[in-house]
Nucleic acid binder design. Structure first.
Lengths: 298, 298
DNA sequence: TATATATTTATACATGTAGTACAATATGAA
DNA sequence: TTCATATTGTACTACATGTATAAATATATA
């Protein structure tokens, strides 16, 4: 990434921190960083992509600092873990990451959502592995559950502590309180031998080669789901339902989906009236086109 | 709210559930519910206001169902609490409330944010009070912390359980697992005598300093409800109904209720005949007087 | 039934946003 | 200097929220 681009990222991040993601327009970013629209879209294909760049940079930095805390230290020392969590919280606060996450999670941008979700899962995984360091193999079956619940209770403790005391200080106090709950949690789970989610599940959550495919699946399913709902009050709905089902099946289950059949089905579907319908039909068609484009490249 | 308006709310809610709040344009709502733009803006001043209407309706319904579960039951029975939590989760899922909350929290609409935040705090308070029923006064100092952490860990348990098993079923299993953690949490906090946030804090969260407190709201609503019933067999009832509605709305929803208008409305209402009526009119007037007295003190 | 009042519709309009297209211009290395 | 690449400026499309208003329609009342 060149200096100029880096500069835009920095300026945009500042604007996002000050005004929020949604409230910052592209024009704001252009003015604030002194570039033209053309250059912006040369760098990033959208505001979302710029956001991803910001997240990536911030998280790379966090990870680096986080690992530095471990250098030459005892991995089983829970005090180091506490310091790492505090670091993470401070980074979050400094960069308004939580707020930006939330904003972004609702921005109708599936790619961006995917990115954030993956980030969260990575974070859970990091905590899980640190807990494995600290509590040892014997507690392993309970540590994914513990990691998940720890993140949940920590987040809300921070949130409401902040509301109650209206201060950013004393975060350390909240972290220590929450970690004590975590320790108790692990002990109790081991004692009663209760497990909600197996740590092995983590492996299937990690990004792998099938990920883009899964994303496509999700998008397709979502699109078709919505269109089915729209059909509810339309005559001949069953015919169109069948067409939609056929497209989904042919694309997801068939080894070599028959392009001509799917295109014909799409055309028949286009005949349905209504502007809402039309607005939903288009992305479906785009999905199909993209599907066959990448299919040809293989 | 008249039938037509109700119909619009219903159709819009469906669209929000299917496509999300942001992704649904006003035009979509117009098409789907078959009204014109003029009518829409006659009903609601914005999409946000429509959203508030949806939230209010859904939550009123949830609260009703939730209380019905308690009728004739033992408040200390944790099984009832579990049923109530499950009900809440099901309502959330059915109405995509979590998603809509998140969407709305970033919509640059202060009133809407305020509304949602208050709703969350109310929820915490409700849980706190139920925990007080279940665990008793002796555990009181730890129950607000417990309520907060319970909400946090429950939410994430549900979320990741859903990711892991890709199913909406077995919510009950997750709830029970989480409630067992809650019980252990309360015990442990009492044993080690640790406290993060004092339950007394709740009181300061409830009244948004500009809005009347809940007790006042309840009293007002009750008083107006009774008076409306009395009006049933009286001529010009609709005029008086409107006056009553106006008073309630102006006192509860307006940032700076117009004293002169409310007093004038009260005077008009006094004109209704009947000794029973008079007996109900007086407490209402007292409520209003008290309201403006405390308002002036601020 | 006739008339006044309120509601609803249809349409045009103002404003703001994201993103595209493209010719003109600047920059920097061979 | 030349040539490829980066950048700019401007115009354009498309779509969104929300306002304004005259005309049509429905409702209540006398």
């Amino acid at each position: 990434m060149n200096d100029r681009k880096q500069h835009v990222v920095k300026m945009a991040h500042q604007l996002f921190i000050d005004k929020g993601f949604q409230a910052t327009s592209i024009q704001d970013i252009l003015d604030y960083s002194g570039i033209s629209k053309g250059t912006f879209y040369n760098y990033f294909s959208s505001k979302s992509e710029l956001m991803i760049a910001i997240f990536k940079m911030t998280y790379a930095d966090l990870e680096k600092q986080r690992n530095e805390l471990l250098i030459g230290q005892d991995r089983t020392d829970i005090e180091i873990f506490i310091k790492q969590i505090e670091l993470q919280l401070k980074t979050n606060r400094k960069n308004k990451l939580i707020t930006l996450f939330e904003e972004v999670l609702v921005s109708n941008d599936i790619d961006l959502k995917q990115f954030i979700d993956q980030g969260r899962i990575n974070n859970i995984r990091w905590i899980y592995e640190r807990l494995l360091d600290i509590f040892g193999e014997t507690k392993k079956p309970y540590l994914l559950d513990s990691a998940i619940m720890f993140m949940g209770l920590l987040r809300d403790n921070i949130k409401f502590f902040h509301i109650a005391h209206d201060t950013n200080a004393n975060i350390g106090h909240v972290v220590r309180y929450s970690v004590r709950r975590l320790v108790n949690l692990v002990d109790e789970l081991a004692e009663t031998d209760e497990q909600l989610i197996q740590p092995e599940q983590l492996e299937s959550w990690i990004p792998d080669c099938r990920k883009p495919d899964q994303l496509f699946q999700k998008k397709l399913h979502h699109s078709i789901y919505i269109m089915k709902n729209l059909l509810r009050h339309i005559e001949e709905q069953s015919k169109y339902m069948e067409l939609l089902d056929f497209i989904e099946e042919e694309l997801l289950d068939s080894k070599s989906p028959r392009k001509f059949l799917i295109e014909s089905a799409l055309l028949s579907l286009k005949a349905v009236d209504g502007s809402v319908w039309e607005k939903e039909w288009e992305p479906l068609e785009k999905l199909v086109v993209d599907f066959f484009k990448t299919e040809d490249e293989k």
